[in-house]
Every structure is written in C-alpha cells, then in structure tokens.
Design a protein around this nucleic acid. Sequence first.
DNA 1: TCACATTTTTACAAAATTGTCATAATTATG
DNA 2: CATAATTATGACAATTTTGTAAAAATGTGA
Lengths: 242, 242
Amino acid sequence: MAVTILVVEDEPAIQELIALNLKKAGHMVLCADNAEHARKMINNVLPDLVLLDWMLPDMSGLEFARRLRREERTKAIPIIMLTARIQENDKISGLEAGADDYITKPFSPRELIARIKAVLRRRLPEMSDEIIEIGGLKLDPITHRVYVNTNDKLLKPLEITLGPTEFRLLHFLMAYKERVHTRAQLLDRVWGDHVFIEDRTVDVHIRRLRKILEAVGKENLVQTVRGTGYRFSIECNMDNIE
Amino acid sequence: MAVTILVVEDEPAIQELIALNLKKAGHMVLCADNAEHARKMINNVLPDLVLLDWMLPDMSGLEFARRLRREERTKAIPIIMLTARIQENDKISGLEAGADDYITKPFSPRELIARIKAVLRRRLPEMSDEIIEIGGLKLDPITHRVYVNTNDKLLKPLEITLGPTEFRLLHFLMAYKERVHTRAQLLDRVWGDHVFIEDRTVDVHIRRLRKILEAVGKENLVQTVRGTGYRFSIECNMDNIE
DNA sequence: TCACATTTTTACAAAATTGTCATAATTATG
DNA sequence: CATAATTATGACAATTTTGTAAAAATGTGA
C-alpha cells in the first residue's frame, strides 16, 4: 500500500536525501521546512507517518510532536524523530512526547527504511505489506489476493475475489483482529480521512464481505458487536445460556 | 437522545438552512442572531452543542467561544465554528480558543451533520481500555468480551455475552470496585449525563446483569447496599446471622 | 459519451435491547 | 409482630439497532 510520509526537516540537503530514499522505497513523500509549514500540509493531507527533525526553525520537534498527539485527527500518526544529539535525556523525552522511535543522525538509508517498516508494522499493520494469515484466510497485500484454505488440506488454497473496498475492509479487520471497531473508526481508517458517508454504509460492505466469506465456509469470522460495531475474530461468540 | 443545538448565526438565510437540516436530523434547534441573544438563550437552556459563526454583529465568534469556555456552566459544551475564511491562521486560533471543530462555508448539510455527530461522539465519557480482572471475571474493553474462569481450571475461560448497557454497567462497576454507587451516579456515569430515566431502571439492569453472572456461578459480585445503591465486590456480604 | 462496475443511500424487515410498570419479596424500625 | 420502606423480579410495549435487498449515485475506461 502507498504509505504517505511527511518529512519535517529544515536542512535542504538532508531533506532531499531522505525524500529520495523514501521515494525509491515506494513511499509517497511530503516535505516541510518548519513546523508551521508542516501543520499546513497536515491540514491538507493526513500523512501515515511523520519523520520529524529534533530542531526546527520555529518550534522544537518535541513540542510539535506533542501538538500532533493532542489533536484528535492526528494523534494516531506514528512519529519518528531525527536527532543529531545522542543524549539519553533527549531520547527519553522524545519518546515521552509520543514519538514511536528515533534515529540519530547520521543514519544510513537502509536503517531509515528499516525503522519505518518496523514502526509501521507495530503501529499501522494494515500499511505494512505483510501477508496476514488468520482463521484459514490468507491475505497478501502485495499481490492483492485473498486465499482460503480448503477443508481438504491436500488441495491448494482457493482464491476469492473482493471488490476494492471489501479488500481494504478485510485487510483492516484482519490487521486488527480481535478488536471491536465502531463504524466511525472503520470509516476513518478504511475509507480515509475527511469522508462524510453514512455509518450504515459500513453495514452494507460488511454484508458483502460476509456473503463472500460464507460462500467459502468462513461464516463466523466477521462478527457483530451489538451497540458498538464489528470485529474480526476466530473465537466463536456463542451464547452462554442454552 | 434529543440533542439540543444552539445555532449562533446572524445571516437569516444560513441560519434557516442550518436549522432546517438539523431538525431533519432529529435535533432540537435554538437560534440566536448575535452573541448577546445567544447568551440569554444559554442562560435559559443549556444546549448540548453550539454552532458558532466566526463573525457576529456584536462580538467575534472567537471571543464568544472563549467566554463559553471560561464559565463553569458552559465550559464543557462542544463548539463547532462556522467560518467563511479559509486562512489557516483562523482555523488554528479557532481551535485554540476551544472550538472542537470548524466548518468552512459553504458546506453541505451532510458534512454538517457528520461533523456534529463526530464531535458529540468524541465528548462521550470514555473509560480506560485496560483489561480488568477481578473475582474470576475478566473484562476486555478492546475486544469487547467478558470471560469467566471456570471451576475446572484446566478448561479455558467461558465467554459470556452481555447487552450493551449491561456491558457498560459491569465495566463501570468493575473499574470502580469495592465502592458503593447510588442509582443517580450510575445513571450519570453509565447511561450518560442528562438522561431522563427512572432510578428504578437501574435495578432492572442490575437484575439482568446478576442473572447472567448467576448462570456462571458468580452470584455475590454485584451487591446491594440497602438505602444507598450497588457495589461490585469480591468480599462476601454475609449476614451476621447464619 | 456511453456502458459497465462499484459504491452509497434508502427503505423496510427482523432482531435485540431497553425502560416502565405492577407486583412480590425482603429488610428496617418501632 | 405489624407496618413502612426499599429492593427484586417478570412481563410487555416501545425503541433502537442491525440485516438485507434494491434503487440511486458515482466513478471508470473504452
């Protein structure tokens, strides 16, 4: 999946270097020279991850990170701090302010990419392109295919076809399995930021997803949590009293 | 769930348009032409949300928002700013003054409704997401599941299913265990602020919760404190005489 | 632009939950 | 022990939530 990364770094040379490497790794890159500029960009497009220099011309990176964490819209964005300092205190306060990781300059492009991947895997599993396999389903984000294990283990897995939205929905649900998601959360994270569509639209897509899964014998994976939302789970939700 | 919304907007056409759409969405609507008028209305009835135009005849919307935030009685009311300006600075200072969100004119009715919904949702009382485990019960807010340890320790915990209200009630009682709660407190914190529900209704839900817990052998966890209310406790409240 | 595929909304049916009431049971108090 | 106060409980209607299909809207590529 195309991961949008905002690079907030005032030194042009470094900014350029980073941007180049990120693009080469297949990411969408946005650049900002200072906090104010960064804020405007975020207002416009919500990035999936922020690379944040420790020292900015107009505000400390730390303070900027805190602001991102405070706002509802941005508080879930993973942040990686770029710092030239090696002092432990800085590392600690950087992490306290909500950074997910930090990299000490100078760093190799390889290290940068690796860290980004690690953070994405931890914080935004649906963005990392790893194959997810749960409950007899296997979803491959790279090839964009979904397989279901057949009962007969000798036969090779059966591929099922999903529409674009159903695919993203399933991907998200599988990436965050065993968790309840409200319709609003699903709209935010599967459909995207700043969309204004009805909550109930989610139901319809859940329905279509279920229909396809039912057809291959996977009926209890997508569960309804009444009053809250939906959940992907391999645990049955059997009624207790019988 | 009748939500009362105060619309503070001097232009009659826009005010009318907004009011119409809000009513259609099932809200109670109050309208004010200026800050002074709005103040009087608020004095009379406390709205659940304020839609506030950026520019008012007698005061800037920003200033009005600040005043609402200063007063104890009104400081918790969510505010959505309506602004024709698109300048970033305005957005920022609007949010800094304590607005919960802003909408740039012109906006679609759908967007308006969606934003209102989002803001109201955000304001709902939120409890910690940590797993709570007491007295052989395990409640997980993330997956939205409740397990009870079976007597046979080798078997895995049994899941029990609760209705939305019973779940919230149990969650609250467990989060504040070993403490008596009056019915009024429970209504406030579990059902939500200003709900008009009979005290006795709490009894019924306590009853329902107990019934489910009894069915799995957890009969003494939810206790009655006569003359006061209810309490979740692992200590038995045995009668003196047996 | 048209045909086609997908997405979103709408409308209604089905199911589950909820609040209230009436009445029974229990407890406190003199 | 009698009485009043409080709580427990079951039933039921009203409301809310979710499932489902079909229509409307939207996007897409030839």
